[in-house]
Write a protein that binds this DNA or RNA. Structure first.
Lengths: 350, 350
DNA sequence: AAATGGAATGTGCGCGAGCCCAAACTTTTG
DNA sequence: CAAAAGTTTGGGCTCGCGCACATTCCATTT
C-alpha cells in the first residue's frame, strides 16, 4: 500500500491538488509540460490512487449487466450465477452492482431482447453467455461502438468486441473425452455422440467437441472405432427418447460408448436401467444434480466439469481487474477441464 | 449497496453521530437503553458499514502473516505463494498487507522460529502451512490465547485453534489414487508406494494417503494386489535413488504400479528411461514443472492436483471474509482433487 | 491601455466513518 | 451545598479524492 497522495505530488511539483487531479484523471486543461512533469513525479514516487477515497468521493457505481441463461430453465446456469454472487460479496464495496438479464436457454428471441435491455440499462460492463452466435455478434458490434467492455463466458465466440473469454476450450474438451473413452474402448467398439439440444441454438461448440473426439481418435490411430453423431431435439419427451435410443441400439450393434456433448446425459440415463448403462461406457458434461446421481450410482462413468462457478466468479473478477484495478487481463482464460468420477465428485461441491 | 449512513440513524434516533458510532463499534460509554434503541434502528434500516469510508478514516492495516515453506527449497510452494499474491491484488485496497515467513521445508527448527517471528509481528491473521504437527500445535495454543485467527492450508491438523482448513482430504486423495491405479491394474499386480521425504516431517498425511489406497483396494476386493510402502529420505542422492529402485525391482518382481505420496515423483523418473517408466503405471501428486514434463513425455500416467494456488488464494480470501467482511467461513474447505493427464494438463496452468 | 475571453490553475466542500476533546449532565465527596 | 469526579453525549477535524466554482494568467481585440 503506497502512501503517496496527490497532495504529495502537488507539493513536490509546486502546484495545487486540483491540477494534479486533472492530470491523473486526464480531464484536460493542463499545460503539456506541466502535465508531463506531474506524470513523471507520480511515476517516480510510485503513486497509486487510493481506491477507497476515490470511490467514497465519487460514489461511482459500476453497473454490470449479466446476460446469462435462466437458472430455472437449465440447472447448469445456477453455477455461473452463484459464482457471480460469490465474487460480488468481495467486490461490492468497490461500488460494483450486478443486474441480471435472464433468458430461457432455448429462446433466441428472448436472448436478443435481454441484450437490448442490458444495453438500455447503460452498464459499465457486461458479462455475456453468447449462446446464440449470430445474435451475440450483432450485439457485440453495438457494445463496441458504445465502448462497453464485454466479457464472455461458457461459449467461445470470435469477435473483436470480446474483451475476455472465460470458459472451456471446446475442441480439447472433446479431445479429453476421446482420451477417457480410449481408456476402456476395445478395437471395433463404436462411439455414439449425442447432442440433446435445440436446433435454434446455432452455437458451434457442440461440433467442436465432436471434432475433438475425432481428432484424438485420429492421432491415436483408432481407425476401427467409429464415432457417430446424432442431434436430438425432442429431449423433453420421454417416449421419444426411448424409441430414439432403441433405434440407436438397432442401428449400431457395436455401440459400446455414449458421449453427451452437454449436460443432458441424465435425460436419457433417467430412463435406462442399471444393466443397460453398465454395459455402456458413458461420458458427459457438467455436475448438475441428476448427473451426479447417475455418476454415484455407477450408471455414468465420467463427468467432464467445466468449472461453471468459476466462469461466473472469474467473469466478474476480470471486470473488476480491468475496469477498477486497471490491470491487464487475459483475452482467453481457458478453465481446467476436470475429470470427475465417483471417487472425487464430492470435493467439487463448493 | 445499502445507502443507510450513521447520520441517518442518528437523525432518526434524535441523537448525534458520535453516539451511534460508539454503539456500532461498541466502544462503550453509552446508556444501555439508548444502545439498544440504536441497534434496533440500525438493523431495521439494514445499516451496513461503508467499508471504503471506514477504512479511509481509520487507515487500519490488516496484517497477515503467511507462514509457508520457502518456494526456493520446494517448487511446490510457489503455487500457494502465487495464490496469496493474486488474492492480495484484489483485497489490498481494504488495507490488507501480507508478510511472509518462509522456512526450508525440511527444517522444523526454522519452522518454529518463523512461527515465533510471525507472532512477534503482531498480525491480525495468520495463514499457516503446518508441516510439522507438534510444533504447529504448540504455536496454535498461543495464537488462540492471543486471539489471532489462524487459517491452515495444505496439511490438515486437528486443533481447536484452527479457524479454517483449506486443502485436500488426504485419505480421499489416496482413495482416488487407488481408483486410478485400479483402472489399469491386473490381478496379482503389485503396487509400490513411495514417500520421498524427510523423517523429521512428522505430519501424517502421507500415511493417510496410503490408508486411502488400501481402503479403496479393500472396498473393491482387490485382495490380490498388494501395496508396499517405503519411506526414502536420501532423495537428493541420485546414486542412492537408483540402487534403491534396483532393489525394489528385485524385491517385488510383480511391481506394476508406482505411487508417490507427494510431488517428488520426478526425483526418480528423472533417472529412469522411457521404457522402464512405460512398463510401470505411475501416479503422483502436484503439477510442478518436472512432473508435468514427465506427464507430457508419457513417463508418468496421472498427476493428482490439489489446487495449491487455490490454497493460497482461498486462504487469504477466507481471512478477508472472516475479519473484514464479517462473514461465516467454513471450518473445512476441502479442495477438489483434480485428475490431470497429458490431455488436460495445459488447462491447469494459470 | 483597457477590456474581453478563454485557458490554466487554485480552493472549498463533501463523501461516511473514526477519533478525540469539549460540553452537558449525573453522582459522589468533603 | 458546592466542588470534584465520573458518565454520557455532541460535534469538529481528518482521511484522500472528485468536483464545482473561483481566481489568475495571458493573448487578443478595440
Amino acid at each position: 500500500m503506497s502512501k503517496v497522495t496527490i497532495k504529495d505530488i502537488a507539493k513536490i511539483a509546486g502546484i495545487s491538488r486540483g491540477t494534479v487531479d486533472r492530470v491523473i484523471n486526464n480531464r484536460g486543461n493542463v499545460e503539456k509540460e506541466l502535465e508531463q512533469k506531474i506524470m513523471r513525479i507520480a511515476t517516480e514516487l510510485g503513486y497509486e490512487k487510493n481506491l477507497m477515497a476515490s470511490n467514497l468521493a465519487s460514489k461511482k457505481i459500476f453497473k454490470v449487466a449479466a446476460i446469462i441463461s435462466d437458472p430455472t430453465t437449465d440447472l447448469f446456469w445456477n453455477f455461473p450465477y452463484q459464482g457471480i454472487q460469490k465474487a460480488l460479496k468481495v467486490v461490492k464495496h468497490y461500488g460494483v452492482e450486478v443486474e441480471y438479464f435472464h433468458f430461457p436457454d432455448y429462446d433466441n428471441h428472448a436472448f436478443s431482447i435481454q441484450m437490448e435491455n442490458a444495453l438500455m440499462s447503460n452498464p459499465d460492463g457486461i458479462i455475456l453467455a453468447p449462446l446464440y452466435t449470430r445474435e451475440a455478434e450483432m450485439f457485440l458490434d453495438t457494445a463496441v461502438s458504445k465502448n462497453i467492455p464485454v466479457i464472455t463466458i461458457n461459449t467461445e465466440i470470435h469477435h473483436p468486441g470480446v474483451l475476455s473469454y472465460i470458459g472451456q476450450h471446446s475442441y480439447f474438451a472433446g479431445y479429453l473425452a476421446g482420451r477417457l473413452l480410449h481408456l476402456r474402448l476395445e478395437p471395433k467398439d463404436d462411439v455414439v455422440a449425442l447432442n440433446f439440444g435445440h436446433k435454434v441454438n446455432n452455437a458451434n461448440h457442440y461440433a467442436d467437441k465432436i471434432e475433438g473426439i475425432k481428432g484424438y481418435f485420429a492421432e491415436h490411430n483408432l481407425v476401427d472405432n467409429n464415432v457417430h453423431w446424432y442431434e436430438f431435439e425432442d429431449f423433453q419427451n420421454k417416449a421419444a427418447i426411448i424409441s430414439f435410443f432403441k433405434d440407436l441400439q438397432l442401428r449400431h450393434p457395436k455401440m459400446k460408448a455414449l458421449f453427451f456433448t452437454n449436460s443432458r446425459a441424465y435425460k436419457l440415463l433417467d430412463l435406462l436401467d442399471y444393466e443397460t448403462c453398465k454395459a455402456l461406457y458413458i461420458v458427459g458434461f457438467d455436475m448438475i444434480e441428476p448427473n451426479i446421481a447417475h455418476l454415484k450410482k455407477g450408471k455414468m462413468d465420467f463427468i467432464i466439469n467445466q468449472n461453471p462457478l468459476q466462469q461466473g466468479y472469474q467473469g466478474l473478477m476480470s471486470f473488476v481487474d480491468h475496469s477498477i484495478l486497471q490491470q491487464e487481463i487475459k483475452s482467453k482464460h481457458y478453465l481446467p477441464l476436470d475429470i470427475v468420477l465417483k471417487e472425487n465428485v464430492d470435493f467439487y461441491n463448493n
